[in-house]
């Protein structure tokens, strides 16, 4: 992961895709266009999590799961396992 990250920066890419579950608390990320008929993503889409929307990891529960994400002036909680299916791009 670390290596990949370095490479990306070296060649001047700002894009670095990670699953939403890997984002750190307080981190801002951007949602990618997904081709998934995934029930979690369908729900999140209805909440306004369309591609390009900025998401912030607002809270992480004491036992590490679930997480609370905030986007479009709302806060929702989802489990890590579900968040793992949403790919995001780190914003530098």
């Amino acid at each position: 992961m670390c290596v990949l990250n370095l490479n990306c920066e070296e060649i001047g890419f700002s894009q670095h895709m990670i699953p939403l579950s890997e984002a750190k608390i307080g981190q801002r990320v951007q949602v990618q266009n997904l081709d998934a008929d995934d029930p979690v993503y369908q729900r999140l889409l209805a909440f306004g999590l369309t591609p390009g929307v900025e998401v912030r990891i607002a809270h992480v529960a004491p036992l590490g799961d679930p997480i609370a994400i905030s986007f479009c002036s709302q806060k929702v909680m989802i489990r890590r396992a579900d968040a793992a299916r949403v790919m995001v791009e780190e914003i530098n």
């Binding site: 909680m77 396992a81 579900d82």
Partner: peptide, 9 residues
């Protein structure tokens, strides 16, 4: 299986 859920705060 644990079903996905999204809960608004």
């Amino acid at each position: 299986k644990a079903a996905p859920f999204v809960l608004e705060m």
